[in-house]
């Protein structure tokens, strides 16, 4: 059914901290590793060792440069995956009912056996969260690791999306964003979490936390190389000076 549910009981999603993300791409790899063997068709790579490698990924990390006026530029690593939007345009355009949003937890999924591979849902998504698999010819997207988070066969601490579990910087958080008292909702409130492309009217569930303000603003760049020069002290310092004076 490609009509969106009026409301969902929970709004499971991710909160991504752009302040702590170090851009290591571990979440990209762990996502691929889990999801190529998990829910649905595997995530294909084509020409993996050739001149033009290409592959299906459900999560990708972009790196942006942000240049404030009159200040040095800063680098922000930017992980991006499906935002499990409340008004998901990818769901309503689907002609077959393969694309759907679950009313119990708000996860947007693709029923791959019903997908005709028309690609219209990928057109409808402004975030590029959906990728057509080049081998299976069906639409792939983040499932919020639906086969982990409810999986009682794995240890409890592993019942979070693979990307969250693997992040070494703890930049990714998983929880119910529909519950104002949940850890993730409080994090969003404390840190001023925001939506991506609010002008598209998709009402994303996933939130992003902005980089924290820099501790100090530097007017002049420091010569970092000079800090690496060894400074001799004590007897060696006297010797150094004495030898310098000898010419």
């Amino acid at each position: 059914m490609t009509q969106l549910p009026e409301t969902t009981n929970r709004k499971l999603g991710l909160v991504i901290d752009l302040d702590t993300c170090v851009g290591c791409h571990a979440c990209v790899i762990s996502c691929k590793e889990w999801n190529t063997g998990g829910y649905g068709a595997p995530l294909a790579d084509t020409d993996a060792y050739g001149d033009a490698p290409s592959g299906t990924f459900l999560n990708r990390v972009h790196t942006f440069e942000v240049k404030p006026e009159n200040k040095p530029a800063m680098i922000t690593h930017f992980p991006k995956s499906c935002l499990h939007c409340e008004d998901a345009p990818c769901v309503t355009v689907c002609p077959t009912g393969a694309s759907f949003k679950r009313s119990e937890d708000g996860i947007v999924l693709v029923h791959e056996d019903h997908c005709i591979g028309c690609g219209l849902c990928a057109w409808a998504c402004p975030y590029g969260a959906r990728e057509m698999d080049a081998v299976e010819k069906v639409m792939k997207k983040c499932t919020l690791c639906v086969d982990r988070i409810y999986n009682e066969n794995i240890p409890e601490e592993d019942r979070v999306p693979s990307c969250v579990r693997t992040c070494p910087a703890k930049a990714r958080h998983f929880g119910d964003l529909g519950d104002p008292d949940s850890d993730v909702s409080r994090l969003v409130a404390d840190r001023g979490g925001f939506d991506l492309m609010p002008e598209q009217g998709t009402k994303p569930v996933n939130k992003y936390l902005p980089p924290r303000p820099k501790q100090q603003s530097l007017d002049e760049p420091i010569n970092l190389a000079s800090l690496a020069e060894p400074q001799a002290t004590g007897f060696l310092g006297w010797l150094d000076g004495a030898l310098e004076r000898l010419g």
Binding site: M1, T2, Q3, P95, T96, H114, C118
Partner: peptide, 9 residues
């Protein structure tokens, strides 16, 4: 299957 979701698509 594309005939089925005329209510939204």
């Amino acid at each position: 299957r594309a005939m089925t979701q005329w209510r939204s698509s």
